[in-house]
Amino acid sequence: MKKIKWNSGWLFVLPALIVFIVFKYYPIAMGVGISFFKYQIMSPPGIFIGFGNYIRAFKDPYVLNALRNNFEFWIIMLVLNFWVPLALAIMVNEVTKHTGIIRTMFYIPAILPTVVVTILWKYIWQPDYGLANFLMGKVGLPHQLWLNSTLLVKWCMRFPYLFIFAGLSAGMDFIIYLAGLSNVPRELYESAELDGAGFWRRLFRITLPMIRSTISMLLITNTIAIFNLFDEPKIMTGGGPAKSTETLVLYAFDKAYTGGEFSYATTITTIAFCIVFMLTVMQMRLQRRSDM
């Protein structure tokens, strides 16, 4: 009987294992851990206060406001953004001539950084000299305050995603949909044509059911992105006007960065993480059921 041989393959896995534990699992565990403390930076983790932070969070009008904002952003995402890349991908997929150049035109923006696009649109929404009010004037509508109006600001913030050229996640989704569409077998369309099914019937009975898993995957990634929303409100409005774009993560960031209340801030990010986690699990369940 030879001795248990040590597999040197572990040496290949070890560096990644360490990095992932230290920079992913440890911080998330530490975040959950210190959310039960009143954190003191000089003598961490500070005083144990049990669920004190969570009770405070659910009584905090700003947290509730941020949750509502996140939810409103989600609704706006569904109304204004979610269907756009899908519709565009279906249309681009129909192109038969100059396929390469047309696809490239629609691909390029997928890579532009959020910061760049968000700032560009901040310029467009400027009430005094922005392009938006200029165009409003052209079609004879009254000028708006856009980013300074509590009513419009969320819509303005999501509006750039209507444009694939705005880059951001819309461009990503477009590329993924296009890949999904090209995987739908041709034969299905051919036999549907022989059966006399028209364009819309084919679209709703063949195409959309075939790419259903792609749609639900992107729905969940977009939802997760909404509950982690930080960059756009931070850059465009800083959470204003009147806290109408303050999201959970942005509020947590302000609490930690300017307030120094680290444990309360991690409590809020932990709540956001739990929401995302539950949504992801729900999505996996649904997907498994639909695969069967």
């Binding site: 597999n7 040197s8 393959g9 572990w10 290949f12 896995v13 990644a16 294992l17 992932f20 920079f23 992913k24 699992y25 440890y26 911080p27 998330i28 530490m30 975040g31 210190i34 954190y39 930076i41 961490p44 997760i224 982690n228 930080f230 993560v249 947590a252 960031f253 930690a256 680290f262 801030a265 991690t266 990010t269 932990t270 956001a272 993480f273 995302v276 986690f277 992801t280």
Partner: peptide
């Protein structure tokens, strides 16, 4: 390299995709 539990380990790595930077940023800062 025929490691034991290779599939479980893969899940361990993929699982981190659910942990966003937003969720870990404050503990990471500390």
């Amino acid at each position: 390299l025929r490691l034991k539990y290779a599939n479980h380990l893969l899940l361990f790595f993929i699982g981190t995709m659910m942990i966003s930077n937003q969720a870990t940023i404050i503990p990471t800062f500390l």
